[in-house]
Design a protein around this nucleic acid. Structure first.
Lengths: 396, 396
DNA sequence: CCACCTTTGTCCTGTGACTGGAGAAAGTCA
DNA sequence: TGACTTTCTCCAGTCACAGGACAAAGGTGG
């Protein structure tokens, strides 16, 4: 079952592989236009890549007015696995070498069940994708987990919402099970990478990616590279204090952002409002389902429920204040909003924008787009595929 | 008067120059230990550097048990100028090629007088240093200004406290006047670079450098490099809101950090306390000098004045809250506190530490030193010298 | 003071990476 | 069909560099 995928022998080959990944099939001549190498050298490196099987010939290229060139493409059988482990669900997807999603499965799940149970589920989902004929095997996998990760080793460290995962050798264990190289990162970082690769952040070099799901986190990209901080906890903005002596937070402190706005907080506030009789709309939904989620608030808001709109605006204002601070500090070129609550859509975005544009200095906000991510739940898995492909498409 | 200082011809030479800058005189053999080059190649590059005059022979090296080697050092006549333009004062210093400060002058000044007047003063100070025999000319200058800078061009952009400087071609103008290459950056960034080169941050790769002077700013170093943001305004934390609908700030918003704690705010609060009769100590000083500054508060606090201590603690708490947010977000390996208010010393530091350690998560604060800068007013000028030397000691 | 070892500096040749030109092959366009 | 383009291949020449051989200069132990 183990696949020994070849690795590029030098930086040129790595560069070529990435060009083919990001630009699709290309002729040698077109590759030559994008890389600073002589035609002879280029031909040698392409030949070597063909020998390794990482790339294959792929018919004739479109004419550019002279002799037609043969196209080169990444091996069509290459498959990457993207895994996005959230607090309450798992996403698993297969991509080809160009990181196009060929198949995507989502399943509910509780991270608190611990790594063993979760991995069992992940492996079953991967097996299902394989069985459906989308892949014969995996050449690499990128995994996102909802907590800080010591990146080089691929090990979660002190994850607040994932008891039982602290120090678990995720990278090693999954690499063993899947029989392929694995990289592990924070789920928010993967989302940022995904939006950078295939979403709204394609042309951004320095940007923030705020993910509002069960918790709140922020991916930081500096010069096109994810910044992870000294201990891997950079972007952990959910526990920034927004209200001195405010609400009790699960982390033990008071007044954390997450205690006021996140999937979990929103659901709790909505249930409270429903029970207090402040929102018939929400009360109806509570009765029907027995509990409420952020999605219920989104639907109620879309239906014009004032209480729901207030909840979203309130949370948006609070989150906006924090983002405004981060914008002042970090001066990003773009802010992407993603995660489970993107369903709250324009109401949320409006609140965020108002706060940021009002509180940050004009120089920092002057040309600062604040937008929703465009990949939705695919961002994480695409980011995972991108992460491992970056790793594999680099000199050994 | 123009000096045409040679530039390294390739990356190896640049590397060697930096080794000599940071490690002082070295034998070829010692250089060979630090650089990944064969002895032959090394000899060739050193010879070329000797030809350019950038480095010179410097006697015999200490014995390592065999044939003694001749030392190599950077040309002893090389001189860099470090200029730190603050809101109310200018620092100008000359350094040798090893960035040791040979002479340092400070003068009061008001940036609001505009670039022309300020540069006149800076040039006079530089001339004074030259006249005292410390330099025959300058091979490069690094300038810090108290506001955002479009770094590649060396032009201030929309600086709030420097009316009249917006868009002024500082780099070009000073390069013309001084007859040498010039680099311009935010003063806070220079302080960070200074502390990184010769101060407490020597071994830090990712750290923050908070400068509390007339205003408040923060230098951000990522992977050993200064991060400046998309428009050059990264680190502008003085206008982060710490109190909704709080005090009016000069920027037009309300509740900014700078409105509560900064040299200017502290002086104002101290004068108010003196006039209200809350502090006889401060009242006495006010009567004597006609006005109060942050330094007066420092002295009064050292003398045990309760009101002054309260002011410092208050401001420290507010600033600490903001730093705590930044620590959660950025996960630095070190936080350096500097600027004019370092005289407030331990009282301030204690307040900052309390807030940060209490509000940020253990993973981020676990091994996070929060310390005062050790270079004081020299940090900025050393950072300036370092900035320009990095520029000159890189391949042309 | 001498023989021997270590370190340092210099010279020289071999190797691998790479460039760029010549020319053949394959195609387009009028 | 002929002229022009583009692409591909081959090859010789250049350049950077490594690493060995050797000489020079110093230390060390007898």
């Amino acid at each position: 079952m183990r696949r020994m995928t070849a690795r590029p022998a030098n930086a040129h080959q790595a560069r070529l592989l990435r060009l083919l990944r990001d630009g699709g099939p290309n002729s040698r001549a077109q590759l030559g236009d994008q890389i600073d190498l002589s035609r002879s050298k280029l031909a040698v490196e392409v030949d070597r890549l063909l020998e390794t099987g990482l790339v294959v010939a792929d018919g004739l290229a479109a004419s550019r007015g002279g002799r037609r060139s043969h196209n080169i493409r990444l091996a069509p059988g290459l498959r990457f696995l993207g895994v996005d482990i959230g607090a309450t669900s798992v996403d698993v997807a297969v991509t080809n070498a160009e990181l196009e999603v060929l198949g995507h499965i989502t399943q509910p799940m509780d991270v608190r069940e611990g790594p063993v149970a979760v991995f069992e589920q992940v492996l079953a989902m991967a097996a299902k994708l394989k069985a459906s004929g989308l892949a014969e095997g995996f050449d690499g996998a990128g995994i996102g987990v909802p907590g800080p990760v010591r990146f080089p080793e691929g090990v979660p460290v002190a994850p607040p919402i994932m008891p039982g995962w602290d120090g678990f050798p995720v990278r090693e264990a999954l690499s063993q099970e899947l029989g392929c190289p694995v990289m592990v990162d924070n789920d928010v970082n993967l989302m940022a990478v995904g939006e950078q690769h295939a979403g709204v952040a394609r042309s951004a070099r320095d940007f923030l990616c705020v993910k509002i799901g069960t918790g709140i986190g922020c991916g930081i990209v500096v010069g096109g590279e994810v910044y992870r901080g000294t201990t891997g906890s950079a972007g952990d903005i959910g526990h920034i204090q927004v209200e001195p002596d405010g609400r009790q937070c699960a982390c033990g402190n008071r007044g954390c952002l997450e205690a006021y706005f996140s999937g979990a907080a929103l659901a709790r506030d909505a249930e409270e409002a429903a029970r207090d009789g402040r929102s018939p709309e929400l009360a109806g939904r509570l009765e029907a389902a027995g509990k409420l989620s952020a999605a219920d608030v989104a639907v109620a808001a879309a239906a014009g429920d004032g209480t729901s709109l207030d909840l979203i605006r309130d949370g948006g204002n609070r989150t906006g204040q924090v983002i405004a601070s981060l914008v002042s500090f970090f001066n990003p070129g773009l802010v992407v909003i993603g995660g489970g609550v993107t369903g709250l859509g324009h109401t949320l975005l409006a609140a965020l924008r108002t706060q940021v544009y009002r509180q940050s200095l004009p120089l920092a906000t002057g040309n600062l787009p604040i937008v929703l991510g465009e990949l939705g739940p695919a961002a994480g898995v695409i980011g995972g595929a991108r992460l491992i492909s970056d790793h594999l498409f680099s000199p050994a």
